[in-house]
């Protein structure tokens, strides 16, 4: 039956520097999935996709109704931190997903991307081009991006990537605690956005362990 759908994409850095934090991140994603997937109203109005990136990017969980998948595929570390690969794959995936949802007669809302990284991009010259294609104002399905930086991530880069909101973990906050805050913010966002009749993206203005960065309004 045709529905109004808000697609969410979680894009996580799985480079080697994330090794010590991967269990916490996978645990947070599993909690997000359990909370959203067991809420029929939210599950009915949202779709969820998980993308991991390091030297390359891969779709770990193709876009799905969160209540139809019982176990999420976990992240696993690899070499590199290629932001460009993540943004290029996102653009391609969103394009295909939105077309498929529309082909099923669904009304599709602007996708939301939650981007998380703990480091500097290893493709400094290439990623801005892929990013520009992702946020191209002429592309109708360009997503709202909420960016989170933890550990060694560069605040200026994270602030540039977030189009909707951007957060940087505070000094002194452990990556595990920051990831807990990330997962909780993600859950709150999906549940609040999905249970709203107008399907507005609702992201908490404050996230435990993070400082909100200024995002330039266009």
């Amino acid at each position: 039956m045709p529905e109004q759908i808000l697609p969410f994409y979680v894009v996580c850095d799985q480079s080697y520097s994330m090794t010590d934090h991967l269990d916490a991140l996978n645990d947070g994603l599993a909690q997000l999935h359990a909370a959203v997937g067991t809420d029929p109203v939210v599950a009915d109005k949202t779709r969820f996709c998980l993308i991991g990136f390091a030297g390359n990017a891969e779709v770990l969980q193709p876009l799905c109704s969160p209540s139809d998948v019982v176990n999420l595929v976990g992240l696993a570390t690899q070499a590199g931190t290629n932001f460009g690969a993540a943004f290029a794959l996102l653009r391609e995936t969103i394009e295909d997903d939105v077309a498929a949802l529309k082909a099923d007669a669904h009304q599709v809302y602007r996708p939301a991307v939650f981007f998380l990284s703990d480091g500097h991009p290893t493709d400094p010259a290439a990623w801005p081009g892929a990013y520009e294609r992702l946020v191209d104002p002429d592309w109708a399905a360009r997503p709202n991006i909420i960016a989170f930086g933890i550990g060694d991530a560069d605040a200026a880069t994270i602030g540039r990537i977030g189009t909707f909101q951007a957060f940087m973990s505070r000094g002194g906050v452990s990556p595990a605690a920051a990831l807990h805050g990330f997962a909780r913010a993600l859950t709150t966002s999906v549940v609040r956005s999905g249970s709203d009749g107008d399907l507005l993206l609702r992201v908490p203005t404050q996230v435990a362990g993070f400082t909100a960065l200024r995002v330039d309004q266009l």
Binding site: A34, G37, T38, P40, A43, S65, P66, S67, D68, V70
Partner: peptide, 9 residues
């Protein structure tokens, strides 16, 4: 009570 049964529940 109001939605079809899904895998998660």
């Amino acid at each position: 009570l109001l939605y079809p049964r899904r895998a998660m529940w």
